[in-house]
């Protein structure tokens, strides 16, 4: 084979090697996965609104900063209760005649992973305000504002979803700020994002690289417990704010709150664990504890942070007490 002098032989030889390898590492595995994976039994079809919301998510290029994949490594545990598997993406097909399939797995995490955002943050009001200006809820956020998904109206219709924007972020608008249909669809899509549980009897794939706890470490941990401030930042802060003051008309303050400061904090445990939707003037509180699998000692740490910060001064609770409250709450719920 005289590759040096015969261009045809050279072109064919290099192309053949390339195409062969391409079949082996791209086309065959892709087809194989396409044929051998089906959506999980528990997964639900998207509604029209959610579908439309996904298209907005795509056209705004959200995938540039937000991944949608829980890797099977310990550090990804915060984004879902189990690692992602091929079946999670199996139901995804071509979006339209013009556009390819969008698994939206992403390669960057400038913002948080959104695989499970629907469970982690199910509050529509929060999402809308966050989209209008992310810094209204998370001061340090660098996410773009999607203000063009909202309309200014002098008078809102009865069906309009009005969002209460703190004065600072209104940018001089005097009128009522109303979510457009696109904004609502995008939020519907975000709320639909949640991990589907594996069918009963299926073993969960494991998270790798677990940080094994050593003897030396558990001893001080028992004294101090988990870091309440960090847990508060991860789980509560985006609504109730670092100041504990909440946001007027959206999220209630914890500073000076009766429920937080109560001598018997069973209600507080209940709300953290199972959510709360009793007050018209505020958004729905999701079941943070349940959704994020918080353990009794973690709940205790969060409660103690809330009960002793921002001028709050109440008695600290222990993990054992929280466990007792949880048992009582479970009993109560069972009776109802």
């Amino acid at each position: 084979m005289n590759l040096f002098n015969d261009h045809k032989k050279l072109f064919w030889a290099s192309s053949a090697l390339f195409v062969l390898l391409m079949l082996f590492v791209a086309i065959m595995p892709a087809i194989n996965n396409q044929l051998n994976n089906a959506p999980l039994p528990g997964s639900m079809l998207m509604t029209a609104d959610e579908e439309a919301g996904k298209k907005i998510y795509i056209s705004e290029g959200c995938v540039g900063c937000h991944s949608q994949q829980v890797r099977n490594v310990e550090m990804d545990k915060v984004w879902g209760s189990r690692p992602g598997i091929a079946a999670d993406y199996a139901g995804m097909h071509r979006i339209s005649f013009w556009q390819n399939t969008a698994t939206l797995m992403g390669t960057e995490r400038t913002g948080p992973d959104l695989t499970n955002i629907g469970q982690r943050q199910p509050s529509k009001e929060w999402h809308l305000l966050h989209l209008f200006n992310p810094r209204a809820v998370v001061a340090e956020s660098i996410m773009p504002s999607y203000a063009w998904l909202f309309e200014d109206k002098d008078l809102a219709d009865s069906l309009d979803v009005i969002i209460t924007v703190p004065e600072k972020f209104k940018a001089g608008r005097k009128s009522v700020i109303v979510a457009s249909q696109e904004a609502l669809q995008l939020v519907a899509y975000l709320k639909s994002l949640s991990q589907v549980p594996l069918p009963d009897g299926t073993a969960k794939p494991e998270f790798l690289y677990q940080t094994s706890k050593k003897e030396g470490e558990t001893a001080p941990a028992a004294d101090n417990g988990p870091d309440g401030a960090a847990l508060y930042a991860s789980n509560c802060q985006s609504c109730h704010q670092p100041t504990g003051e909440g946001l007027k008309g959206a999220f209630p303050p914890l500073k000076g709150s009766e429920i937080v400061l109560n001598e018997n904090p069973q209600d507080l445990v209940n709300i953290i664990m199972n959510g709360y939707d009793a007050r018209e003037e505020y958004a729905v509180m999701p079941a943070v504890g349940k959704n994020n699998n918080l353990k009794p000692q973690e709940i205790a740490a969060i409660m103690n942070h809330e009960r002793t910060s921002w001028g709050n001064n109440a008695k600290k609770v222990t993990a054992q007490e929280v466990e007792k409250f949880l048992a009582a709450i479970q009993k109560q719920n069972a009776v109802q």
Binding site: I27, P29, A30, I31, N33, A90, R94, N100, T101
Partner: peptide
């Protein structure tokens, strides 16, 4: 061509491509 053709792009196939 291979990356734009739709025949092997469903589900995780899209990610492989």
């Amino acid at each position: 061509l291979v990356s734009y053709l739709p025949f092997w792009q469903n589900g995780i196939g899209e990610v492989i491509l």
